[in-house]
Amino acid sequence: MTYDRLVCANCAAPVNEGRCPVCRASRERLQQQQSGFMAGVSPVALIALLVVLIALTAILAHQGV
């Protein structure tokens, strides 16, 4: 989830503006989550990777390796 569309329940302002301490804390937490391992990988890329891995497994199983 991105924080650019979230609205703070404390001050009713967009979280990405960081107007109150609650907004700033939420913005910081979401930024840390988004910068984690494989955060920039799209779901389509993950599905494509899964399909490739399944295909490789099937090929190796068929060859008897």
Rank of each mutant, 00 (worst) to 15 (best):
A39S: 15
G40H: 03
H62D: 13
A39F: 03
V51P: 01
Q32N: 14
G64R: 04
M1T: 07
L60E: 12
L6M: 14
T2V: 00
A13W: 01
E28Q: 13
R24Q: 14
L50P: 00
Q32E: 15
S26T: 13
L53P: 05
G36I: 00
G18W: 04
G18C: 04
Q31I: 09
R19D: 07
V22G: 05
A39H: 09
L6K: 15
T2E: 15
R29W: 06
V22P: 01
L49F: 08
I47V: 02
L60R: 12
R24H: 08
L30D: 14
C8N: 09
R27P: 08
Q63I: 07
L53Y: 01
L30R: 12
T57R: 15
P43G: 02
N10P: 00
Q33N: 14
Q33S: 07
M1E: 12
A61Q: 12
Q34G: 13
S35K: 13
Q31C: 05
G40T: 04
Q32A: 14
L30W: 06
E17P: 06
I54D: 05
G40D: 09
R27V: 04
A13S: 12
H62K: 11
C23Q: 10
G18R: 06
V15F: 00
T2P: 06
P21W: 02
R24G: 10
L56K: 07
L6W: 03
R29P: 03
P21Y: 02
D4A: 07
C20D: 04
V51K: 10
G64E: 05
Q34P: 01
D4V: 04
G18F: 02
G36R: 12
L60T: 13
A9Q: 13
A58T: 03
L53N: 09
Q31L: 10
E17T: 10
A45V: 02
T2W: 03
